[in-house]
């Protein structure tokens, strides 16, 4: 859980940095997208690095899900009889209780996201469109339900990271009593930065800042 999560978080950081290029204009963004596909050339053929990244990501996602499913199944096996009284959480932090359904929401989102902006099968610009056009048309004001879905999913992602980031340190034995506070602050900060960073693009398009 922790190791695959860490891989995914690192990817998200790179992802958001790339996304923000859109604020430099269409050309900058399309060039960046082009570069992604050709990085490493001519030492390696086109798309080598990108494919490697995609494979690592896919494996991480699958292992992350597999761990989550295993943990959930172990948990329900460990408590076959549920409590009659409504459980009241005693620990601080609501984020921790969103991990499982939040994870499912994020998974659905990723599927949509790939169909929308990677394969562009559900994108108005279509597979032939340039990356910049896919974005601008995908989040056009009249497509607000899509944008809303993105917002919800990204908020879930934020909550997921808020618990996930510090939790990874704990699981890997890298945390101790004194580092809890800084770690949690880092977790909140990182989640906020990522969520805001990711949100800025669709929101900017939806309200017409980027056309």
């Amino acid at each position: 859980m922790a190791v695959t999560g860490a891989v995914l978080v690192l990817y998200l950081v790179a992802h958001v940095v790339g996304n923000l290029k859109i604020f430099y204009g269409a050309e900058a963004f399309n060039d960046y997208a082009h570069w992604l596909r050709h990085v490493g050339e001519p030492a390696v053929p086109a798309r080598t690095v990108l494919t490697l990244v995609e494979v690592v990501l896919a494996v991480s996602v699958i292992l992350h899900m597999w761990s989550a499913v295993t943990l959930t199944r172990r948990a329900s096996k460990a408590r076959p009889v549920k409590y009659a009284a409504r459980r009241k959480t005693q620990a601080s932090g609501y984020a921790v209780h969103t991990m499982r359904y939040g994870g499912v929401v994020i998974l659905l989102f990723i599927i949509w996201h790939l169909l929308d902006l990677t394969f562009a099968t559900v994108n108005p610009a279509g597979p032939a469109g340039l990356p910049y056009d896919r974005l601008v048309q995908g989040f056009a004001p009249e497509r607000w339900p899509v944008t809303l879905f993105y917002v919800v999913a990204l908020v879930m992602l934020g909550l997921h990271l808020r618990h996930g980031v510090w939790s990874a340190f704990q699981t890997l034995g890298l945390a101790n009593g004194r580092s809890y506070r800084p770690l949690k602050i880092v977790a909140v900060g990182l989640s906020l930065v990522l969520v805001l960073g990711f949100l800025s693009v669709p929101v900017a398009i939806a309200i017409g800042v980027i056309k």
Binding site: M1, L71, A78, S92, G93, M99
Partner: peptide, 15 residues
């Protein structure tokens, strides 16, 4: 023994 795995919820230390 069949105990579940830890997901660092912190409920344990709270009670």
């Amino acid at each position: 023994e069949g105990f579940g795995g830890c997901t660092n919820t912190g409920e344990c230390t709270a009670v």
